[in-house]
Design a protein around this nucleic acid. Structure first.
Lengths: 358, 358
DNA sequence: TTGAAAGCGGTACCAC
DNA sequence: GTGGTACCGCTTTCAA
């Protein structure tokens, strides 16, 4: 099952076999197919140790993610780093960061592509803007894996995310359980035009329906990921619905909503479910103002993304078109354990992540 | 930073350096320390690829786990398998199964130790019985990692488990949230004398206390992992407390309790939280009879155990004395996603559920 | 006790 | 187009 066995079986040299296996130029197509067929039938598996030992060739993967929100993206980076260590030093991961989702990701992508990276892990802030670049990469044989958010209708290799429908459904089921008496709840999102956001709403409503609609959605608020808008519209919703029992903020933009509820003295009568985990949210969970937050497991997403990408680069194995992590509920009682597992300064502001190799 | 650099720097041969680094016999203690010091100062990192390429030596890890309950232990095995693939073919994992927790594990352990395995992953059903064997293994330099349940006061390398206090606390917090009106709840366990079980109770009570004791523990039931006893005592508890609002079964022995509640027509007035995920439980969750089950994440436990063991075998890196996974709540809405990620026959009826400790 | 040298399974280069 | 071969870093054997 080695390259030599193939060579011997065919009466050719190992050099020829190597050329055939790697589609290198300067080989008779005829002998090439003979070699490939024989490799197949002998069940040839390349010995990665030997390959890397000689060639010293290093696969380089570029990870382009925002700096904000640090805790979340650092966790994602950590998951990638951890998953990559077993493959070191044959695999090198290069982290490049830009300020915010959608701010500078295209430039970073172009830079890395030009520098000859072998693959990407990115979070497309603006999928449309990134699409042509993903296409270019794909044409050059450079695979792109999307994390957290997908870039649909592109040639990305796969995407890793928390299934948005399930995310919404988990939040809905939890609220339903917390509010057995029924009543009205509010749903906050970013843009309903965004597929992911709409899916969360569908999942959420499905869960309420399961319970026989004792819980009703009093209002669906699009806050466009804007703090001021979130705050303003939260105040409006709360005032319009003095009997509101619960709120689910399905984006990371939960702080303005929490503050609005606090200002109106409504925290104690509201069951609030938020999204993800970040330093400013920790306190709200600890003191019970946030009943639970739906966590999209950045560490696991990072691990899955790296493994899918690496497998493809080494084996050519194509992953399924979408990979999902199961969203989970973080509450006061398991919060501390989550924080422990997160990158060091979970509650302190993180500095410049910069470019780091692994 | 290679073996040659050390040799050159000291004017000795690579063979000598190798003998020194691996504490092989037949080397002058004097030169040995010189080599080691130089290796240190040059920051020598062995090239694992080259090592494995030449020596063809394969690390062999033995995984001894019960067959029952299949879904749980198969998931654990799956986590180990997945985590091991990146290290293939330098690492070989050998799975040995015995019928039930504590039934035949000692024999399997002895057999594997005699066969010259390099490390163990085991779930000690009866830690006391296993203790001397772990000691023997440790003396021979064969590390043992415990999963799911610990073997305290032994020389095991580390243990991986869901932190029992947090497991109990999560269940308690969830029940508290589900029963905002307060009332009485029942707590089922195996043996309170078992450290893990007592810890779960502590965590559970702590969560109720957080809520100002509106929820009270009406009864703590030790069912000794016995189905008939669980059923009998559940009936008794339910009849003694006609107004019981919730139940937490902190072991895997939840079916008899569920059946008892059903027989008494109490399912609709009870909020029930169980432990782990197994085929017979799936239906109860789907139809909402079980509000949630606290899942101890066998896949993650397997991954952590393997990584800790491998690191130790390769690097000598000692893991922390205990490794914890965060317990998570599985509800109807995320159930399907969990089942997807599990080994094949997730819902096929298992044979005898058997006796399992948690 | 130590040194020299032969590979492990590939890759890459040079000569034909 | 193809064959031959040196060599990647380490382990192991054999000779000194």
């Amino acid at each position: 099952m080695g390259i030599k066995d193939i060579a011997r079986a065919l009466g050719v040299s190992t050099g020829t076999v190597d050329r055939a296996l790697h589609a290198k130029p300067g080989i008779n197509p005829m002998t090439r197919t003979r070699v490939l067929r024989m490799a197949e039938s002998l069940g040839y598996r390349p010995n990665l140790a030997a390959r890397h030992l000689k060639s010293r060739k290093v696969l380089r993967i570029t990870v382009n993610l925002p700096r904000e929100i640090a805790l979340f993206w650092d966790s994602l980076r950590e998951g990638i780093r951890e998953a990559a260590t077993p493959f070191a030093p044959a695999l090198e991961v290069e982290f490049a960061s830009y300020p915010r989702l959608g701010e500078g990701d295209v430039a970073a992508f172009e830079r890395a592509l030009a520098s000859g990276t072998n693959g990407f892990i990115v979070a497309p802030g603006d999928p449309v803007a990134l699409r042509p670049h993903i296409r270019t990469a794909a044409q050059r044989g450079v695979p792109v894996v999307c994390v957290v958010t997908d870039a649909p209708d592109t040639q990305r290799l796969t995407s890793v995310s928390a299934d948005p429908y399930t995310v919404g459904a988990v939040a809905g089921e939890f609220l339903t359980r917390c509010l057995p008496g029924g009543g009205e709840v509010g749903f906050f999102t970013g843009w309903l035009a965004t597929q992911d956001h709409a899916d969360k709403l569908r999942g959420f409503e499905q869960s309420l329906a399961h319970d026989g609609h004792k819980l009703r959605v009093a209002g669906v608020v699009e806050a466009h990921d804007d703090e001021r808008e979130g705050h303003r519209r939260a105040l409006a919703l709360l005032e319009a619905h003095p009997d509101l029992k619960g709120i689910y903020v399905s984006t990371v933009n939960s702080l303005p909503v929490l503050r609005a509820a606090e200002e109106l003295g409504r925290l104690s009568t509201l069951t609030i479910v938020t999204t993800d985990l970040f330093p400013d949210l920790v306190g709200w969970i600890r003191r019970g103002a946030v009943a639970a937050t739906v966590y999209q497991r950045p560490i696991s997403q990072g691990r899955l993304a790296l493994q899918a990408l690496y497998q493809f680069l080494v084996d050519g194995t194509c992953p399924p078109p979408k990979l999902h992590v199961v969203p989970i509920l973080v509450m006061r009682s398991n919060l501390e354990l989550f924080l422990e597992r997160l990158p060091a300064d979970a509650e302190a502001p993180a500095g410049e992540p910069g470019v780091v190799r692994t």
